[in-house]
């Protein structure tokens, strides 16, 4: 696992001379902020940090936490849970770079999607909407019926829980799975991943080896 920042999208030609749409992620070097063990924390995990906080934003608790790893407070801190009782191979203060993906072919990317604000059901859930004409008035993008008497028979019509309606869309944690890792650039700490990745350019992301296609 590695933390990084989305740089943006571009295109590259692959070895078969096909043009691929790719996302460039500047990932690492991350610092191991803390190693959690069953004895001390109840579970095994490695805490990674990325991107220094600027001096005016560093709090004393954050400085104290970072000092144990001999580093500065980080803007983006995420934990990598280790399965079962596997012991961490990393030590506090270690640096993790893109080189860990040298053998990897597929990755998952976790990010926060772009916020869309309050969105109607057509945009949010791909509803079909109502006709544009034939007597339709003032409800071209409406969700239609929400419930009838029969949806909760005996208690009077009630809207079921989880009914798809308009509401806040985006700005949510999204995982995209099994994206091909096209290339890595160790010099500039870049990962080149095929396809799109959630979030805006400059948004923080977590990149991990694909859990479906472990190569």
């Amino acid at each position: 696992m590695l933390l990084g920042k989305k740089v943006g999208m571009t295109q590259v030609y692959d070895e078969k001379e096909r043009l691929l749409p790719v996302t460039v992620i500047q990932a690492g070097p991350c610092v191991v902020m803390q190693v959690k063990t069953v004895e001390t924390d109840g579970y095994n995990a490695v805490q990674l940090g990325y991107d220094d906080k600027k001096a005016s934003r560093r709090t004393k608790p954050a400085i104290g936490h970072a000092e144990k790893a001999k580093t500065l407070p980080k803007k983006y801190i995420r934990e990598m849970r280790l399965a079962g009782d596997a012991k961490a191979e990393l030590n506090q203060g270690d640096s993790v770079t893109v080189s860990i993906f040298a053998e990897t072919k597929f990755v998952d990317v976790i990010g926060t999607s772009k916020g869309k604000g309050f969105a109607g059901p057509m945009k949010r859930y791909h509803f079909g909407g109502m006709p544009g004409s034939h007597g339709t008035e003032r409800k071209h993008r409406s969700p239609g019926s929400q419930a009838g008497y029969g949806t909760d028979r005996g208690h009077g019509g009630d809207i079921k829980k989880g009914k798809k309606m308009g509401g806040h869309m985006g700005a949510k944690r999204i995982t995209v799975k099994t994206h091909r890792l096209v290339s890595i650039d160790q010099e500039n700490n870049l990962l080149v991943i095929k396809g799109s990745v959630p979030g805006p350019a400059g948004g923080y992301v977590v990149v991990r080896t694909s859990q479906k296609n472990k190569v």
């Binding site: 740089v7 943006g8 571009t10 295109q11 590259v12 030609y13 790719v22 460039v24 500047q26 650039d185 500039n188 870049l190 080149v192 350019a201 400059g202």
Partner: peptide, 14 residues
């Protein structure tokens, strides 16, 4: 968006 980094990735294909 850091276009300088994107240019670096692109430049290998140019």
């Amino acid at each position: 968006m850091n276009t300088a980094l994107l240019d670096k990735v692109e430049s290998k294909c140019l």
